[in-house]
Amino acid sequence: MKKFRIPLLLAALAFIAAPALAQDTGTLKKVKDTGTITIGYREASIPFSYLDQNQKPVGYAMDICYKVVDAVKQKLNMPNLKVALTAVTPSTRIPLMANGTIDLECGSTTNNAERKQQVDFGMTYFVIKYRFVAKKASKLDTIADLKGQTVVSTAGTTDIKALNELNTADKMGINILSANDHAAAFLMVETGRAKAFLMDDILLYGLVANSKNPADFHISSASLGVEPYSLMLRKDDPEFKKVVDDAMTKLYKSGEIETIYHKWFLSKIPPKGINLDFPISDSLKRVFANPTDSPDPNVYK
């Protein structure tokens, strides 16, 4: 009988709703016990977290994350702490954070009140607006232009939710498509499957700049909402959050963040050596001066 135990247990649990599965004892303890911290990265969130020509994740958020990891090393006094990397998509990142597969997500994740009920966030490190990209030839620029068009966005993002809400509230009759990740969504516009791709503006700049013919595309001047980005961490883990927040605050106050910002937004970046030329916005300047982890968009307006 003993031999059957594991498959029995496995299967039994899969179908029995076991309430209160686990008690948190904190990410720091987990990292200390396993000697490893696992970072969730994205594959096409340029320039925050994406794969370079060697398929290695790099970016602005990754650099910030490594600073946080340094702080964790210091805090735990573990200079040889191993860093494991796991790819996440917008639809997998929150469950994977909750189930402990990743400890820190370094991507392009919007911090909002709704998500805060499931996960927690560090300090805001970027502020975006929703815009859309379309082929220049299709001459779409305002939100009203999207009426009746086929518009794609990425599954699991706040953008696709905004698009849905727009459709319901204003009776826009937009055909909404969802793609697995940003690269796939952009490809739909490139190949003519969708007229426009609604996404966080900075990601659109990154995708367009890295496309084969950047001159073919136009990013709308009209925008929808404002949203803050941050590093995602597990909920109810004040100890770990403090390490993250302190490390980020130190980064901002020391001015080091400007070097990192300059590296990713105002210089040539891999894989193609393109310069996004995206100066620090006023609202982000305010965040760097007074670090905040607020999920409220109005704070950043």
Binding site: A20, L21, A98, N164, E165, T168, D236
Partner: peptide, 19 residues
């Protein structure tokens, strides 16, 4: 970090607001 079961979720409206 407990998983919060919520079986009533099926009767909640989706963000699309259509059902």
């Amino acid at each position: 970090m407990n998983y919060h079961w919520n079986w009533k979720i099926f009767w909640q409206l989706t963000p699309e607001g259509t059902g």
